[in-house]
């Protein structure tokens, strides 16, 4: 394997986002393809991070730095991947539902998904069902992720699912939900495809859904 790819893996593992732009450009200058950088540089680094996180040797702040390093590189290679029609992980649309201003969990999911190679469109917090519907139509994501922290706001998830059904786009996406009060039972009850208990399992689930 080329030395520069191994360097890129290391930058991901170390969360060294400052050097990532230079090294990604250097790899391209060396004639490496975007797909090769993704599959043999970035992904092995992120896979290592995933294993170390699960083993309890790395923690969320470090994982987020790694995800940011990955993102720096993805910003450069994504257009090239699109040009080459290379297979990427897919697109994730995220939002905290209407009435809820808590977004730290949702932001973590976004960063973890970016770390897993997804393109992430984040609608922010307090997102109306109609806004979700419009965004699904516009961005055509593979996966829609909704978050709520409050027992008072989790019902907005159900309303959003209904709005998607009414707009006829429910079946174009896999829907996953999360947030402290959300449970598998609730996910089953409102007819979504998955419930993830934390950001790491959300990005795992996104991979399964997209794969």
């Amino acid at each position: 394997m080329s030395e520069i790819l191994s360097t890129i893996s290391t930058l991901v593992i170390e969360g060294n986002f400052a050097d990532m732009v230079d090294k990604t450009n250097a790899a391209l200058d060396e004639g490496l393809g975007a797909e090769e950088i993704l599959n043999n540089g970035l992904m092995p680094g992120m896979d290592h991070v995933g294993v170390e996180f699960k083993a309890g040797n790395m923690f969320v702040p470090e994982v987020l730095r790694s995800a940011k390093a990955m993102q720096e590189s993805m910003n450069i290679i994504r257009p090239l991947l699109a040009e080459a029609e290379a297979e990427t992980s897919g697109k994730v649309l995220l939002g905290t539902v209407k009435g809820d201003l808590h977004d730290i969990g949702k932001n973590l999911v976004g960063m973890m998904c970016e770390g897993a190679g997804f393109e992430v469109v984040d609608l922010g917090k307090d997102v109306e069902p109609e806004t979700f519907v419009e965004a699904v139509k516009e961005h055509k994501p593979n996966i829609l992720g909704m978050s709520a922290l409050l027992t008072t706001t989790m019902r907005a998830m159900e309303r959003t699912v209904k709005a998607l059904e009414e707009a006829g786009v429910r079946d174009t996406v896999k829907i996953m939900i999360g947030g402290a009060p959300v449970t598998q039972d609730f996910a089953d009850q409102i007819g979504v495809d998955g419930y993830a208990a934390n950001a790491a399992s959300a990005s795992e689930m996104a991979k399964q859904f997209a794969g």
């Binding site: 969320v60 934390n198 950001a199």
Partner: peptide
């Protein structure tokens, strides 16, 4: 604290 593994 936010547990930096489980995020709870």
């Amino acid at each position: 604290v936010m547990d930096m593994s489980s995020m709870i």
